[in-house]
Amino acid sequence: MRFAAAFALILALAGPAFAVDPSERLADPALEERARVVSEELRCLVCQNQSIDASDAQLARDLRVLVRERIAAGDSDDEVRDFLVARYGEFVLLKPRAHGVGLMLWVLPPALLLIAGLGLFLAVRRRTAIPAGTRLTAEEEAALKALSQEGDGKPTP
Rank of each mutant, 00 (worst) to 15 (best):
A12P: 01
R127Q: 11
L59D: 13
S23P: 01
V92E: 04
L59S: 02
F121Q: 05
I71A: 08
V37G: 02
L42T: 01
A14D: 09
L136R: 10
L45D: 07
R87Y: 07
A143P: 02
G117W: 02
D62F: 07
L103H: 13
A5V: 14
D152H: 06
L63Y: 01
Q58T: 14
L144I: 01
V80C: 01
A17H: 01
F3S: 07
L113H: 04
R2T: 00
R43P: 03
E141I: 12
G117P: 00
A30C: 03
Q58N: 11
A138S: 09
K154H: 07
D152S: 10
D56G: 14
E32D: 05
A146M: 07
V46G: 05
D82K: 06
E41A: 13
P157L: 07
V20E: 02
L114K: 08
L9Y: 07
T156A: 02
G133F: 11
D21W: 01
G153W: 00
I10A: 12
Q149L: 06
P109F: 10
L120S: 04
A111M: 13
D77E: 09
L66H: 09
H99V: 02
E33K: 15
L118E: 02
P29I: 06
C47Q: 03
V101T: 12
Q50Y: 05
M104L: 15
Q149N: 12
A19Q: 05
R125G: 11
E150W: 09
A6W: 14
R43L: 00
A12K: 11
G117S: 12
E140V: 04
D75P: 06
R135W: 08
G102I: 10
A30W: 05
I52S: 01
